[in-house]
Amino acid sequence: MQMHWEVLARYYPLLVRGALDTLQFTTISVALGTLLGLFVALLRLSRNKPLRMIVSCYVEFFRGTPLLTQIMLIHFGLPRLLGYHPNTFFDAILALTLNSGAYIAEIFRGGIQSIERGQMEASRSLGMSYAQAMRYVILPQAVRRIIPPMVNEFIAMLKDSSLLAIISVNELMFRSMQISGRTFRPFEVYLFAALLYLVMTMTFSYVGSRVERRMAIDDSR
């Protein structure tokens, strides 16, 4: 079979644009998911049992069902239920945020619980409130420990955002499908798309390992 790499010469700008959109959806969603996840983690560690149950249901649902199902449910199901017009951009962000929020909540919870009990006790014994102890003592230490799993979560989300293609979000995967259909060169197009994904994921895992090493040096001062 003959390769026709020249299609890439023509279409690569569109694919690179798609990669940037993938990056944008992932970054916005993981950023919002981090806020959501922190909030959910704190509720999950709170003393309020009903609240704890509610957020546990949320976490279990979004970790225990496929992201593709969640995307369909949010894009096609929710607008029907609540009677509004589906907005692809909004639905895409919502689906990825809710999904990553559930995973990030567990990452935060693990990080917070990994801090020795004595840290909270020492803070409280000085007269600090629970919230102050969290803010100034527990979270700053937990954040260092959760950097590696957060980088993993970001990379997973970057790849999984390709599922947004199913609701025609104009990201890398959707563009690849369109261009492949138009040019009948699936191998060239998808290989190039795969390389773009790889460049992004490898960049982030490199940055992640650099940050992790920096933190390790900080800790051993």
Partner: peptide, 20 residues
């Protein structure tokens, strides 16, 4: 209780200093 704890200092066996 936070007000009372301000007046009662505590020193722990394992120090529990804030490492960061």
């Amino acid at each position: 209780i936070n007000h009372v704890r301000e007046k009662v200092g505590m020193v722990f066996q394992l120090f529990n200093l804030f490492p960061h």
